[in-house]
Structures are given as structure tokens and as C-alpha cells.
Amino acid sequence: MAFVTRFAPSPTGYLHRGHAYSALTAHRAARDAGGRFLLRIEDIDATRCRPEYDAAVFEDLAWLGLDWEQPVRRQSEHLADYHAAIEALRERGLVYRCFKTRKELDIGRAPHEPAIPYIGGPLAAGEEAERLARGEAFAWRLSLAAAREALHGFEGLTFVEEGAGPHGETGVVQARPETAGDIVLARKDVGVAYNLAVVHDDALQDVTHVIRGQDLFEAAHIQRLLQALLGLPTPTYRHHGLLVGPDGKRYAKRDKAETLRELRAAGLTAEELRAELGV
């Protein structure tokens, strides 16, 4: 089987060193394997994605010296595909409407505490009909309870990790989708959620190796379940360590990490950055 990997940024900010490291790592892996490297734009969050960030992805990656196959898949152009997948799950009783707001879910949680994975279930038919009639917003959630009942071998799901998770997880890893709770698959403000769109597209694009940062390692657990429920192949995962800045914190958009645009404007060359990153 041909080696196929991808770099799949969300245009919600400008790329930084961490993105460059991940893109270069995936590109080199494809080159070393004589395989294919894809670029995919994961722009399903219409509330945060911006045209200027989208355009900058192509500019920054070209500056780094990367090339990729055409055409580039843009998730916002294929929302019907993802909704069809949700409908297939709905017909099997694997998803339910959840009317709880983020504020309701956060009641009693201190700001510094991590969110507790939500486990719920469908409302009684009468109450659901009343809330729908009032036009109340809802999210489609995947029911772990229904998935466990419907999927033979739920407890034995595994995936192969060629890199390492944040705690050294490697080799054949036992999938633990329960750690994510009943995840949201779609909601009104951002449409389809990341986990569903990514497993759909990885299968559609014949991705054999998912190469990405360790911050996404936990997502592999619930993605493995979605692959099983939708009858999709499971790629090999290769998570890599995260770059950290002088302050010891990983580079992140929300922390306003120095962007590739800023580095370029300051006179840094792509060759110098690649040497600094070691890829």
C-alpha cells in the first residue's frame, strides 16, 4: 500500500514554528517513503476561520519549500458529506440531540479545572418535540452507550502508534473512547465537528499515516471508534513531540506565538528555520 500522509491546518490564525515543524515532519516522512503528501484545509469552523489566514497557509508552506498534490480539499466545500455520515449514525440510533449549553455543562467547574467528559442520552420524545417546537438549539452527540451496544468488539478497539503519545504510548494502543464522553458531532455555530470530518476525509483521501503533534493523541481514541462505526479504515498514527518556546510553553495560536510571517519579515530564511527545527 502506498504511503499517504497529510498536513491539515485550520485557518483560525497564522502558522507558527509548531505548525512548520509538523508540516515539515509529515512532508519528509512522505518523501522518505516514496509516498504522497497532501494539504487539507480544515475550515469547518465558520466562526473562527478567516480568508487571510487561509491564504497565509499556502504562502507560508511554499516559503518553507513544501509542495503538495492538487486539488487541495477544503472541508467547508463538503459539508453535505459529513452530514450524510451523521445521518447514517442517526438512523442506527447512535446519536442524540443534546440541548445543554456550554454554560450548563460548566456549572460547578472552576476555571482552572478541565472539562468533565459529558455522558447523557436522548430526552423523552415529548420533551424533545416541545423544545424543537420552541426552536431551541441543540447539538448532535455520539452516544457511547449506544455505540457499545451496537459495536461488537467495542472493548477491543486498538490503533497502531509509530511515534509516541504524551505518556510514552507506542505500538498497539488500546483505544479508550470513553475518555472523551459523548462527543459533539455537529452543532449550529460551527457545523460539523473536527473528529467526524477528519476520519471521513482521511478515509476518502486514502491516508495511511496520520502524522501530527502529541496534543492530538487523545483524539485518536474517539476517532478509532468513529472509524469502526462508519466502516472506515484505520490509519497508522505517528504523533510527535511539541515544540516549546523559551518560556517552556508550547507554541500556540491562542498565546500569540511568533508567526512564520513575522519570522520572515524579520529576515529569517526558510533554510535557517529548517535548520533550527532539525527537519
Rank of each mutant, 00 (worst) to 15 (best):
A85Y: 03
A84G: 00
G156Y: 12
P117R: 08
S76H: 12
R141F: 04
L105M: 14
P122C: 10
K100P: 02
L89Q: 05
E87H: 13
D81P: 04
S76F: 04
G135T: 07
A62N: 10
Y82P: 05
L94D: 09
A145G: 15
G108A: 12
A88S: 12
E130H: 09
A145C: 11
R109E: 04
A137C: 15
K103S: 14
G120V: 08
A115T: 05
R73Q: 07
A110H: 06
R148C: 03
P111M: 11
V172F: 00
G65L: 14
R131G: 09
R74W: 01
A139Y: 02
G163N: 04
G126A: 14
Q75Y: 04
F99D: 01
I119K: 14
E169A: 09
T170G: 09
Q174A: 15
L151E: 05
P177W: 11
E169D: 12
R176A: 13
F99S: 05
I86H: 01
R131A: 10
G108N: 09
G168R: 13
A110T: 11
S143Y: 07
Q75L: 11
I116W: 08
G120E: 13
F99K: 05
E69L: 06
A146F: 03
G93Y: 11
R134H: 12
F159V: 11
A88F: 11
A175C: 09
I119Y: 14
W68A: 11
D67A: 11
G171N: 08
V72P: 03
E69Q: 13
R148T: 04
E104T: 09
W63D: 07
S143Q: 06
P117T: 00
P122S: 15
L142C: 06
A137F: 11
E161D: 07
R141C: 12
T179E: 13
R131M: 15
L79C: 02
F159C: 02
P117W: 07
E87M: 03
K103C: 02
W68R: 03
G171T: 06
E87T: 06
R134W: 01
D106N: 14
P114H: 12
L79A: 10
V173M: 08
I107P: 00
A133F: 06
F154C: 07
G120Y: 14
G120H: 05
G93F: 01
R102H: 07
R134N: 13
